[in-house]
Each structure stands twice: as C-alpha cells, then as structure tokens.
C-alpha cells in the first residue's frame, strides 16, 4: 500500500489533432514510452505485481479437503465479519490513540530542548536519545522482555529486593502498554531527529523578530516554531500511524514469554502471520492483509488531509 500524496489535477483536454500532427504525436509518444519504459517495468514488478498477486490470492480458497477453488469476495465478507480480526484492529487503534501522541509529544519536547541551545552537552544528549533507534527491534524486544520478567527479570529483582509485588508487565491487561513503552523507547529519538532537523532550517531572524516584538520563549514556540515545522509533524504522525498498524516484531517476540497474554490474533499483522504459517490459510491471510492495508491508507490519508489544511 503506497501512501504517496497524489494531487491529481484534471488536465484540460488537448485540442483535437490534425491528421498531420497525429503522426508526429505517435512518434513522440513512442519516444516517451521509451523513456518511461524502464521505470514502468520496475514499478510494475516491485510495486504492482505483489499487490496484484495478493488480490489474486484473495479471491481463492485452498481447503485441506477439496483443494483450491474460486470463491469471489467470500474471503472479504469473512474478514469484514471476523471478530478476531476486528479485535486486533481495535487493539492497534487503542495503541495508536495512546502511544503515538505520547511518543510524538516526548520527541517534540526533546527536539525543542535540544534546539533551544540552553542544553548543556547537547550533542551527547541528542545521540543518546537517538541511540535506541539503532538497536534492532528484535533485540530491543528481547531486552525489554528480560526487563519485564517477574521471575528472573528486572521487575523480579526489584520485587525481591524491596519485598514488593509490582504488577506483571506481561499480564493480559498490561501487555499492550508494555509494548507501547518499548515502541516509544525505540522511536522517540527517530522522531526527535525529524523535528530537530525541521527546526534547524527555521531562520533565526524570525526568533529575533519575535523577541523584539516582546514574545517570550513559550510564545515563540507556539507561534513561530510549531507552525514552521507543521509539515514535519504531519509526516511523523503519518509514519507513526503506519508503524502502529504494522505492529508485529514486539508482540511476536514477547509472545514467547507471554503466550497466554499475546494471542495469535493480538494485532492484525500477527494474525495474518499465524493464518498463513500455522493454519495454511494463505488466501484468507492475503485478504486480511489487503483489508488492513486499505484501512491504514484511509486513516493515514485522512490525517494527511486534515494536517495539511491551512488554517
């Protein structure tokens, strides 16, 4: 699912060609295709073909008894009424509503602090916040899994040392929040860098002008800095939305540690994965993937439309 902003403007129809100019036009268009060809070929192969293949898979059904048969849109009606799928969608929706604002808020604060120039050891601070992004998600999840362990992990050690019982971060009621914590830890630095680089290109003269007009530090932030990096904010939000809908690594790794809290349909991506790898339901998995892709595209596009609207 591509999410390229496409601002298509209706082109005005060209004037009807005369017979002579038509031949020239054909030759021209052939030359045009020649230039376009390599791109179209690669684009078709790496972007359109996989989507086309998924669409093709989604209209068939392969049964253990009876083999493969064409079923039309049956898989889609099944997906749209599948409670296991919608529970997963609801879970990433909740995740999106809570984790993304928290993560972007922290990232923005850090970026503003680094940009303010009042921070001592700015470079060190910046790199250490960014560092978790360089840790592969699988390693990060494993590491946090060990921290969360109530028996041999850090939580367990704290419990033992102080004689208290902290709530189990891997219990069914807390595990989504624990995953949110991991993702926040991983991506605050990345988003901070996006915001910081956007802040860097804001002309300093604007700040001086605002200061001369008597604006305080806070007023400069709200009236100058934030409007100036609006584009970066929208982009980071869209990346985060897509990231939330694609949540997979963290739950999939933690599943080994908390098999009863993280079910095989915990998030849509994990559901797709288990459908095709333990249930042999490749066709239905393709359908779920397509439906999820469409949902992601709709949500991301809505956010983009709203975020880019002037006003």
């Amino acid at each position: 699912m591509t999410l390229l902003p496409t601002s298509v403007r209706a082109a005005s129809p060209p004037p009807a060609p005369t017979p002579r100019s038509r031949r020239r036009l054909r030759r021209q268009s052939l030359a045009g295709w020649g230039f376009l060809g390599p791109f179209v070929a690669v684009f078709a192969l790496v972007f359109l073909a996989p989507i086309g293949y998924a669409l093709y898979l989604s209209v068939f059904k392969d049964k253990l008894i009876g083999g493969t048969s064409f079923v039309g849109l049956e898989n889609y009606t099944q997906a749209l009424t599948d409670p296991r799928f919608w529970e997963g969608v609801g879970r990433v929706g909740l995740f999106l509503a809570v984790q993304v604002p928290v993560m972007l808020g922290i990232a923005l604060l850090v970026a503003l602090a680094v940009d303010s120039g009042r921070l001592y050891g700015k470079a060190f601070f910046r790199i250490s916040v960014f560092l978790p992004y360089a840790v592969p998600a699988v390693v990060a999840s494993l590491m946090w899994g060990f921290i969360y362990g109530t028996r041999f992990g850090l939580v367990g050690n704290i419990n033992d040392a102080f004689g208290i019982t902290l709530p189990d971060p891997l219990s069914p009621s807390l595990v989504l929040a624990s995953i949110g914590n991991i993702v926040t830890w991983e991506f605050v630095g990345y988003n901070m860098l996006i915001f910081y680089s956007a802040l860097k290109v804001v002309p300093r003269s604007l700040y001086e002008a605002a200061a001369l007009d008597g604006a305080g530090e806070w007023r400069i932030v709200t009236s100058v800095k934030l409007p100036a990096i609006r584009g970066a904010l929208v982009i980071a939000t869209i990346f985060s939305i897509i990231g939330s809908f694609q949540l997979f690594n963290e739950p999939s790794i933690l599943q080994k540690l908390a098999p009863n809290a993280i079910t095989t349909d915990f998030v849509p991506n994990l559901y797709t994965y288990s459908l095709s790898f333990s249930g042999q339901q490749h066709n239905y998995a393709a359908t779920v993937a397509i439906v999820m892709g469409v949902i992601t595209a709709i949500v991301a596009y809505t956010v983009q439309l709203r975020g880019m609207r002037k006003g």
């Binding site: 219990s171 098999p259 009863n260 079910t263 095989t264 349909d265 288990s274 333990s278 249930g279 042999q280």
Partner: peptide
C-alpha cells in the same frame, strides 16, 4: 497442528485470568 497453535489463545485464558 493448527488446533495446537491456537491452544494458548483459548485454553491459555485459564492460566492468566
């Protein structure tokens, strides 16, 4: 094999709730 793969989704509830 499939049934076993969803054991923790269903019976697993008895272990944590």
């Amino acid at each position: 094999a499939y049934a076993n793969s969803v054991f923790n989704d269903t019976v697993g509830k008895a272990y944590v709730t």
